[in-house]
Amino acid sequence: MTGCQNEPAQPCCDLSSSHCPKFSARQSLLIRDDAYGVDEASHPRIAAQLMASPHAQKLQIVVNRRSSQQPQHIYRYFRDLGATFLQFIPLVETEDSGSLSPASVQPEEWGAFLVAVFDLWVREDMGKIRVHHFDCALNIWRGHPAQIACDGAALPNECRECMVYRFCHGDCPKHRIASGKSALCAGYRHFFTYSAPHMKAMRDLLKQRRSPIELMALLKRSQ
């Protein structure tokens, strides 16, 4: 569920310029480069695309090290522009030494990013916006198989014995480092552990044929 599925080629918005291409109803919009500090004033063509076309409401957003520092700002920005589906894709690039590149999101930062977005979504936007990682995690809590095309046979025993392995399945092979583990292992473990109580509550509500949206009201009352 960590983004290893085979995806069709997507048109791409480059946030460092005004380029924003046309796309069809079957495509989602991939947004990359520096999403740090985006706003409608500095990127009017992105705002116009999102507001004018229902097809633009499905977004894939690449998260690098800089943009990972403003998770709630980025989430709110695209939410307020009318996005209804968000998939956050971590930028993971390795150097010749095997270490992550300076632009890559670090594992702890990736986990903190997902947790911060989840905290907003679970309290304000369930039923309004779908977030890929959250959808997939809930489906696994409900007993459905993980939708990921990765080979877990080459993973170290530490991964296969991990309590969150059923959710990440070792992540994409392209994200794995010399140890055989995902470069983002600590981040995913943090997110899946943190979100577990909320996911269990949503699963139980669905078992009772109730809406998981009820959790939002419970969380608001507990504040």
Score class of each variant (00 low, 15 high):
residue 78 F to P: 00
residue 121 W to S: 00
residue 31 I to N: 01
residue 89 I to F: 11
residue 17 S to N: 15
residue 162 C to F: 07
residue 25 A to V: 14
residue 133 H to V: 11
residue 212 P to H: 05
residue 35 A to S: 15
residue 110 W to R: 03
residue 197 P to V: 06
residue 71 P to R: 01
residue 126 M to D: 02
residue 195 S to K: 01
residue 166 R to D: 15
residue 155 L to C: 08
residue 34 D to T: 04
residue 207 K to E: 15
residue 74 I to L: 15
residue 110 W to Y: 13
residue 161 E to V: 07
residue 41 A to Y: 15
residue 113 F to D: 00
residue 144 H to Q: 15
residue 170 G to I: 01
residue 221 R to C: 05
residue 201 A to H: 03
residue 186 A to K: 08
residue 172 C to F: 09
residue 214 E to W: 01
residue 125 D to E: 12
residue 108 E to W: 10
residue 77 Y to P: 01
residue 81 L to G: 07
residue 125 D to P: 06
residue 83 A to G: 03
residue 220 K to D: 09
residue 209 R to T: 12
residue 118 F to I: 02
residue 215 L to H: 03
residue 41 A to D: 15
residue 84 T to V: 12
residue 114 L to N: 02
residue 148 I to Y: 02
residue 179 S to C: 10
residue 5 Q to C: 12
residue 91 L to G: 02
residue 164 V to P: 01
residue 204 D to R: 07
residue 104 S to F: 04
residue 26 R to K: 12
residue 212 P to Q: 02
residue 189 R to P: 00
residue 86 L to G: 00
residue 31 I to W: 03
residue 178 A to V: 12
residue 42 S to C: 10
residue 174 K to A: 12
residue 47 A to R: 06
residue 74 I to Y: 00
residue 66 R to P: 03
residue 150 C to E: 09
residue 89 I to K: 10
residue 199 M to F: 06
residue 9 A to M: 15
residue 43 H to F: 09
residue 176 R to W: 03
residue 7 E to G: 05
residue 187 G to Q: 02
residue 178 A to E: 13
residue 45 R to Y: 12
residue 145 P to N: 11
residue 86 L to N: 01
residue 141 W to G: 00
residue 123 R to L: 12
residue 171 D to H: 09
residue 160 R to G: 11
residue 115 V to H: 00
residue 197 P to Y: 05
residue 54 P to L: 13
residue 154 A to T: 14
residue 186 A to H: 11
residue 86 L to I: 02
residue 91 L to T: 02
residue 153 A to H: 13
residue 82 G to M: 06
residue 19 H to S: 14
residue 213 I to G: 04
residue 34 D to K: 07
residue 141 W to Q: 01
residue 133 H to T: 13
residue 159 C to G: 06
residue 219 L to P: 02
residue 150 C to H: 03
residue 104 S to R: 02
residue 151 D to G: 11
residue 11 P to M: 04
residue 2 T to S: 11
residue 155 L to F: 10
residue 119 D to W: 04
residue 116 A to I: 07
residue 81 L to M: 13
residue 135 D to C: 04
residue 188 Y to E: 09
residue 189 R to M: 06
residue 190 H to F: 14
residue 77 Y to W: 14
residue 132 H to W: 09
residue 155 L to E: 02
residue 163 M to P: 09
residue 223 Q to C: 10
residue 125 D to V: 05
residue 178 A to I: 08
residue 15 L to Y: 04
residue 30 L to E: 00
residue 101 S to P: 02
residue 182 S to V: 10
